[in-house]
Structure formats: C-alpha cells, structure tokens
Design a protein around this nucleic acid. Structure first.
Lengths: 254, 254
DNA sequence: GGTAGGTGTTCGACAATGTCGACCGATGGA
DNA sequence: TCCATCGGTCGACATTGTCGAACACCTACC
C-alpha cells in the first residue's frame, strides 16, 4: 500500500474542480471531467456533501463548495505560526508606510496570501487573504523564487504569463532578476502584474535560516516610486519588518 | 452502495480533529482518537498531505491543517451568492451605523460568519470571517433560530451554554425570545454572549421567502443602547439593510 | 400533449481497493 | 545505556469502493 488512497485523491480533485472553474457544476460534468462513472462520482459527492465540504443547490441540483471549507480554512490561519508572529509587525509596517501589507507563503505554483492589512485610509478595499499571486511577476513571488529552492523549480517549470508589457517572461532575464533579488535582499514589482501598481517585498527566515514566507507592501506606482526609483525609506521599512518577523520566529522554540 | 464512502468520512473526521483540538497532533494520537490502526491513519494522512489539506512539521513529524483549505475556503466565499449581493449593502450599514457588520449563515450547530465589515474607525480589529457564533445567545443566531426550521431544531437539541449571567438558557424562555423575534422582525443580544457587547440582527430571505441568512451590527452596549433601550434608528438601519439584500436576492434569477 | 434528451439517483455484482496488525529504524527521556 | 514511544513500512486478507445499467424526474421542444 505504498500508493495513495484513490477515493481521497478523486475527492480532492473534485473540490479543486469545483473551486477552480465555474460557479456550479452538475454531476455529469464532474464525472466526465474526471473520467469517472456517474455512480462513482455521486458516491463521493454525497459523502462530501454530508461532511459539509460540498453543497447542493436544491433547485438545479448542481454542486458547489461547502461552508466547512471556510471554517477549516480560517482555522488553518489560527494555527499558522508565521502569521501569528507577523500580525503586530505587519500592522506597524502598514502604518509607517501608508500602504497595504501582504504576507505570503509558497503554495503549489504560486504565493498564497495568509495575511493582509488594509492601507490605512478610508478607501474601499477587498480582502485578499486566501488568494493566490503568481510567482514570476509579483514582489512576494520573486522573493520566494529567489530564496526557496522549491519555489524556484516551480517557477521554472510553470508558464510565465505576461500580464503587462513590463512582465519579465524569458528564462534568462528572470534568472537575472532573481540574482539581483538575492544580491539586494529584496524584490520589487513595478507594473509587472497590474498596471499602475507596484510592490516591494523581503524574505522571512525561520531559526534555521530557511525561507518560510515573504512580506511586502503594495500600492499605486506614483506613491511607491519617486523620479522613477523606488523610495528608499519604503524599502527599508519592508526589510525591517521582514527582519523583525524572522527574529521573532528564531527566538521561539516549540 | 447506499452508504457513504468510509475513507472519506475518516479523512473528514481527521480534518475536523486537526481543526478542533490542539495546534498539532501526532500520528498515534490521531489514530487512537478515531479508533484506527496506525497504518490506516497514515495512509489517509499521506494522501491528505499530498493534496495540500494537511501539512507535516518536519522537525516533530506532527500534522496540522494545510494551506489548500484556506485557498478553497476563500473560493467558497467568491461563489457565495448571498455574500456577493450583500457586499455593498453591508458597507452602507457600517457607515450609517458606525458599528461593525456581520453577515452569517447557518452551519452545523452555529452561525458561520461569511462577511465582516470593520467598524469605521482606526481601532485595531480582528477579522471574523470563517468564525462560528452560537445560535442561542447572539442576535444573528436568534434570527436564524426564529426563521429557519433547521436552525430551530439544532438549537433545541444542542446545549445552550451560559456565557454571561444574562444568557437565556431555559427552553421556555428561549422559545419566548424566538416568538418576540418573529413578532418584531429582528433580534437583539444585550450582553448575553460577551460582557459589554450588544448586537442587533435581522433576517434575509430569498425569492421564495426562505430564510438564507442574517445580517447585524455589533458594538459596545453603551453605543447601541440609550437609557436601557436599543436605539431605534440602529434597529431601522439593520432592518433596512436586510430588506435591501433580500430584495436584491429576489430580483435575480440564475 | 407527448416525446426526446437531459438531469441526479439507486442498485447489484465484481474485484480492485483500503484496512489491519506486526514489524522496522530513529528518536528522546530517564 | 536502556526502554518506551514515535512515525513509517509491508504483505495478506476481505471489506470496500467501483462500475455500468436501469430508475424516476424534470425541462424544453417539436
């Protein structure tokens, strides 16, 4: 039994299918997408539904993700060591920089946002906790790609899509960006992912000097840059925050 | 095959166990807690780990919840019809009332918070999306118990714990509270769950007049009450918001 | 109004599948 | 150093999940 449990893998694939594509999917769609018999797919869905991982629309009979996932997902945040240590430091960074702060970790082929502090003004902002960002174009992603070998191989294997005309896509250029990132100790994204938006990020290490995540600020390019250059005081603030969280992680044993 | 898939039920029980109890659990603890052989538990955990639902601490070998749950949980929010319709109305409610706004739906034996708008000031607040609230003591919970038959039976069967000395616990008294709630069309919680905190909530109905959730405000009892009574303008604001969301839901067909 | 094609669901037979318990090497506390 | 306990592995067994056909139901379209 060295292999993995088949029914569980299929159930996970169903959840990913429901989460990735359309809002709601019918049983036949799901079964054919995964290459399963309808009866088999139904059995798995029925169990997932009873456990709360999947809900079924009474009217149409279609399936969608269930509330239990939200409950467990936030429980994951509560347990998250890095996030707990970073809470207070990211608050300070948001206040001192005046920009929104993101804390990200490597997950699959991207950066999973595990904490998000709103920009300290009254503008309407959407919470991005739980969202994914690409590895090759964002500041958080570049930092992880530069310091985490797993992230590095993921970003090399994956497709590097051009979101704007400034996105670095070719392999050589991107490796150069990572070299610069390692040399400077931080990474930047000036309109490489979203038009008009820039970000700065620095790596967080644990007590064994292993990279465990990245923290950074994101905001309008006009605010983060001055005369075409990133404002040095913002870079310093981000790096100070990353160092503070790293120190916090290194001091604790569990 | 009228029964559910055994390995899936066991995997779900593991996730609930990991989410509910201690931060991290060892293989033997998990196996004995669920009454499984170690080998069986290991096979399930290995698959869950590969799918990202569970992570293993390298140093101690213990297991905890995985990042994929967070990603799928937020995807659930994106798909959530009620939440999407309510976003703009809850923002307005927070601004007009000056208090934090919660949107909740029935899940298991409690209220699952699916949206949370911070009180519009600069105080530090923690996000409560994904958290659970009790049915019998909070305004959101009372509204759901009064209007949703499923919630009603859940709250009758479950234990009604006394969080403060004002919590209504006995069956007769609680049924009286629900009668009043139905008669007035809203529910309140004045220091029945947390000392010094009050809340007001009203039900949201879909186009078939079925209750699908509740919306409410929460804040210091000194602000929500005046001369021992809930401020009428706040009650009106909450009910207006609930009606607006209900109308929004009723108008749309999908 | 009836039919045709779609849905989600149930059922029974089969064998592939997951389960069990003993065993292994590593770890760490006494 | 020893012993207890940890997580992980392996192979035999039969329980368990899988498959495909048939079912009831609904919608939409001739």
């Amino acid at each position: 039994m060295a292999r993995n449990i088949q029914s569980l893998e299929r159930a996970a694939a169903m959840l990913r299918l429901l989460g990735g594509g359309e809002r709601r999917l019918g049983l036949s769609d799901i079964a054919s997408s995964l290459g399963l018999a309808k009866g088999t797919a139904h059995g798995i869905l029925r169990t997932l539904q009873q456990e709360g991982f999947v809900e079924q629309d009474d009217a149409s009979g279609r399936y969608q993700l269930g509330a239990e996932l939200l409950r467990l997902g936030t429980t994951y945040l509560d347990v998250h060591e890095l996030r707990a240590r970073a809470l207070v430091w990211t608050d300070d960074l948001a206040r001192s920089s005046g920009e929104s702060v993101h804390l990200g970790v490597l997950h699959l082929q991207g950066v999973l946002i595990v904490h998000h502090v709103f920009r300290p003004d009254d503008s309407r902002q959407v919470l991005e906790i739980g969202a994914m960002q690409p590895l090759h174009s964002t500041a958080l992603g570049k930092v992880l790609s530069a310091y985490d070998p797993v992230a590095h191989s993921e970003v090399l294997e994956g497709e590097r899509k051009a979101f704007t005309e400034r996105t670095v896509c070719t392999l050589d250029d991107f490796e150069g960006v990572l070299d610069i990132t390692r040399a400077r100790g931080y990474a930047a994204d000036v309109e490489e992912t979203w038009e008009g938006v820039a970000s700065i990020a620095a790596p967080i290490h644990d007590r064994r000097r292993m990279p465990v995540g990245a923290v950074g600020i994101t905001g309008a390019v006009e605010r983060l840059c001055r005369e075409g250059e990133l404002r040095p005081e913002l870079i310093a603030a981000v790096r100070d925050c990353a160092r503070a969280v790293s120190r916090d992680l290194g001091a604790v044993r569990f």
